[in-house]
Design a protein around this nucleic acid. Sequence first.
DNA 1: GCCGTTTTCGGCCCGACTGTTTTCAGTCG
Length: 574
Amino acid sequence: MRNAEIAWALYQMADLLDFKGEEFFKTRAYRRAARAIIGLQQPVAELYVSGELKNVPGLGKNIIAKIGEMLDNGECHLHRTLKQEIPPTLLDLMALPGMGPKRAKMLYERLGVTTLAELEQAARGKKIRELPGMGTKTELSIVQNIGRLKKQTQCLPPGVARELAAELSDYLGQLATVKKVTVTGDIRRWTELVYNVELLAVTQSKEKAEEIIEAFITHPALGEVLWREHGRIRLASRWGVPVELVIVDDDQYWLALLWTTGSQHHLRRLQLLAWQEGWRLGRYFLTARQDGQAAKVDSEEEIYLLFGLQYVVPELRENNGEISAAANGTLPRLLELPDIRGDLHVHTNWSDGVNSIEEMVQRAKEMGYSYIAVTDHSPNLKIARGLPLEKLLQQFEKIRALNKQLDDFYILTGVEVDILADGRLDHPDDVLAQADVVVASIHSGFKQERDTITKRVLAAIANEHVDIIGHPTGRLLGHREPYAVDVEEIIEAAARYNKVLEINASPDRLDLNDFYVQLAKSSGVLLAINTDAHDLRRMGEMIYGVSVARRAWLEQQHVLNTLPLPDLLKVLHR
DNA sequence: GCCGTTTTCGGCCCGACTGTTTTCAGTCG
């Protein structure tokens, strides 16, 4: 079993135990263990064998034993028993907003509801309001939330989509008849939501295509066949989002890659331009209009070159002016991951992070960074064990001491300070003044009116000690809508006060999104791309933020944390 | 469940909000 599968099993056990009414601390232990496993750099199996698993915080004797069972048998006894006891579809109910273990249990016991479909039926049949503590508003919200969920399952946030694609492409890669697999489509263009998971496989001979398809459809993550023709298949997946596999031979690879990558609008423009240049471009083919001769191409670059264009990277293929720019030779040199010199928003075990400052620093060094800012939560965020004033000052002391031991690396003292519901900040100015970097973020009052919440952020921008506005819209992809904040006004204010806006790189957030990043850039507002990592593994999510930046045509000079340390400190006025 | 030079047992995680109540349970961040 992979780490992610074991973590998923632990999460599910936690949910099932919650449902059974187990005490909070026990189920939290399971969730903490799951989180610890997600954060591991090595396969659990290796650490289990070497006996190092007991050194991982959050993993104790009991859970390690269950991990052992899972590694041996693919499942542990407790998990199996729980699933026999409780229909696992009940967990879908608990995933609805406002629906926890107690209510799910009551619905199950009193109305016999086990699935979302049955729940919707019960709500529409006015059965819910008859239960204690439930009323008409609960019924309405159930119907609304189920409706929203139905829409959401048509697409996936990029992190989950990439995991699914990687799993499927590994599987295909193991087939002897498959020479190469490429993940293409939305994922290759790094769109913020993935509506299709697309894979392109190369085989020695096209006769093998049907064989590959037959093997592919048996994969456990895949379900119903939606559509099929020779060399192409489309199926439903575990998460609801469709998966498409295209199989071609060597000769077709580059044109198939271009075509499957999309976007449709980009390809349309490209077809038109190709036509004007004497070519006919279509699904996996490129022929001369004059004599029907197929073009011989050995890269995507060559295809663009044939049309007199600079190469257009997948992130830009949205028909947002990239083709004219490529024709004029004015495509920018886009930001790249190695341009990033540090992460200005990470959490440690001082607040709700998993790892110590030292561990985060070590990882940052391994990633080739030259600085990192430790920005733990402020006291208002109780759930995240936000640091009280004294502890924050202690942390600053500790960081200053650590810095003395470090060569060629600098830890910035920092804080992610809550913008409180009334617009004040959660630390006094004189404390903020002592931090190298201050990230101000909203973690409460998400449902406030547009005006109120916008004023809160504006007040934070106006505070002279605030450097960066963290995850400016607060959205969680597929989970939580952005708060009602007026982003344009925030951008204008950031421009006036010379403040930095964050591109939160977490694939669950991508906040700001590429559109607002373009607005910010054209207003002269600097962006900071930060992971907001709570453990070592998630520090690796920087690439998602860089991709948002690339989709927004950002270059190195538009991004704060591409600056060498001395320049960075100058911008931060330290 | 995990954790521990304060403890191997007794802590660990708390306040706001919502929808339902008429004093509060359940959920959420």
